[in-house]
Amino acid sequence: MGLDVQTGADAVAPTPPERAAIVSPLRAYAPVVVAAVVLALLPLAFGGSGYYRTLAIIMLVYAAYAIAFNIIFGGTGQLFLCLGALGGLSAYVSVVLTQDGGLPLLVTVPLGTLLAAALGALFSWVAVRRNLDVIFIGIVTLAFSLVFYNMVQGLRSLTGGETGMVVTGGTGTPLRGAVSYYVFVALLVAFLALYQLIDRSHLGWAFRALKNDELAAELAGIDVARYRIMAGAIGAAMVGLTGALYVHHEGFISPSVFNFAHLDVRVLVVLAFGGIGSLLGPIVGAAAVSVLDEFLRPLGQLRLAVYGVVLMTLFLFFRQGVVPTLAAATHRVRDRVRR
């Protein structure tokens, strides 16, 4: 099963990118285009209402986080429990450098993104160095979430601490105002395209191989370590970019936005809904979660409890995610009807 060196290597090596490329670029990127069009037209549905626009942007942002998590976890099985911390770190760095350092957004946002990417790579590297399993990544990243929160508190003079601070960096850019919606649509579409690009590339093939059977992949010559680190870096960069852009759009930054119990929990629910490893799942999941979030707003802190229940239920009964499970079920029904 895993110890038969010969068959393991053979099973993985022969058809790499060619197999993915069997699906023509048209078919692969069509969903991305469709999503782009739908999202671009969405504003018509809320007719200029700032409220719905805000809601939609939040949905886009969570979808973006979810795609990043999809690449890290769905692609290489690394459970990064520090999305909020990564996004928050990038955001704070970008804000501080812009406001206190006087650097332009075009410099500070990439810097924040790079920092997040570096950390993502670091965490992956640590776990990979010793060929260790899921647990260590989970623990290290969770610890980092704690570190992030404490750093924000500790560097109060820089960060404004618990109360947060106003962000002026985005004024005058497309990140403010009605256009901001399209900025985030562009971001999300770019992420979707990136996801597909990775999936169809050498990277995606390597990811599938090492998720399928790590030992066989190693023996087939795949440098598992390198791919894990790449996934960690890319995903973390995406999270960092999203976080930084978001605060410059919002005009306000505080640790609560990037709290583990705020951001990470919602991203997990998004993926539990939408399915880990599906392209459009994050969007569907994010839409569901945004609606749910608004609907439950009067409950305040109790929402955390609801999400906890949702997570447990979903991972108990819909291991693949609600969307894929339902999709599979409808396929089965359709097949049965055909006969």
């Binding site: 109790l302 906890g308 447990m312």
Partner: peptide, 27 residues
Amino acid sequence: EARVLLSLLLTLGAAFLIDGLLIYYHP
């Protein structure tokens, strides 16, 4: 690995549930 993952995800959900309840009712 499946066992580890599920334990992490399920207990995380439980942690959220308990935290949510505690913080809401006894802040």
